[in-house]
Amino acid sequence: MIHLTEAERQCVADGTVAADETGAVGAHLAVCTECAADVERLRRLIHRMRAEPMPNAEVEAMWPAIRQRIERGKVRTLPSPAPRARRRWRTVWIGAGAVAAVACLTVLLRVRPHEPPGSAPRAGSFVPNGGALSPAGDSAGASQAEIQRMLDEIELEKAMLPPSTAAVADSDLRAIDQAIADLKDAIARDPNNPALRQMLAESYRQQQDLLKRLHNAS
C-alpha cells in the first residue's frame, strides 16, 4: 500500500486539500489506519491551537502607558518666537519714539515765536549750509563733528545690516529718516532754535541705536 504524502496528510488535516484529490485521499484514509491516525493527530493539534484560550493579559493595566504616549505625541515643540518678538517690539517702540518726536516738533514750531531774521545765532546752535549743518561757534563745531561721526556710523551700520533684517526694520528706519528730514526742514526755517537741533541730534542717536540693535540681533 502506498501511503499519503506529508503534503496530502497536512492538507487533509487543515482542510486545504485540492478538490480533485479529495476523492482519492478520502478513499485511502478509509482503508489505511496508519494515515488516518496521523491525520487525526494533526487535526487535533490544529483544533487545539485554534481553541487555545488567549493568553491571559491584564490589558487594562497597559492602557495608562499607551494613553500617556498618545498624549505626549500630541505635543509638538514649536520654535520659540520670543526673541524675534522682543526685537520686533523694540524697533516698533523706537519707531514710535521717532514719530512722537515729529509730533512734538510740529507742536513746538506752532507755539514758539520766530526770532527776527537778522538776529545772530546763539552759541551751541547750528546753521544750515547748503543742506548740511554748519557750526556757529566752538561748541557748535564740536556738536557738528559729533553728528557727522554719528552719520558715518549710521551709514556703516546700514551697509553692514543683512537685507532680511533691514527689511524687517524698514518702516521704523523710514519713520526716523522722515523725522530727521522734517527736523532739517524746521531748522532751515528756524536756524536759531536750539530745541530743534537737540531733537535732531536725538533722532540721529535713535537711528544709530536702532541700527546697532538690529546689527547685534542679526
Binding site: 488567549m54 493568553p55 493579559a57 490589558v59 487594562e60 497597559m62 492602557w63 499607551i66 494613553r67 498618545i70 498624549e71
Partner: peptide, 17 residues
C-alpha cells in the same frame, strides 16, 4: 482619546495574544 480607549478595550486581548 477616550473613544480610542474603548476601541482598545475591545481589541487589546486579541492583539496581546
Amino acid at each position: 482619546v477616550d473613544a480610542f480607549g474603548m476601541v482598545y478595550r475591545v481589541h487589546a486581548p486579541a492583539i496581546h495574544a
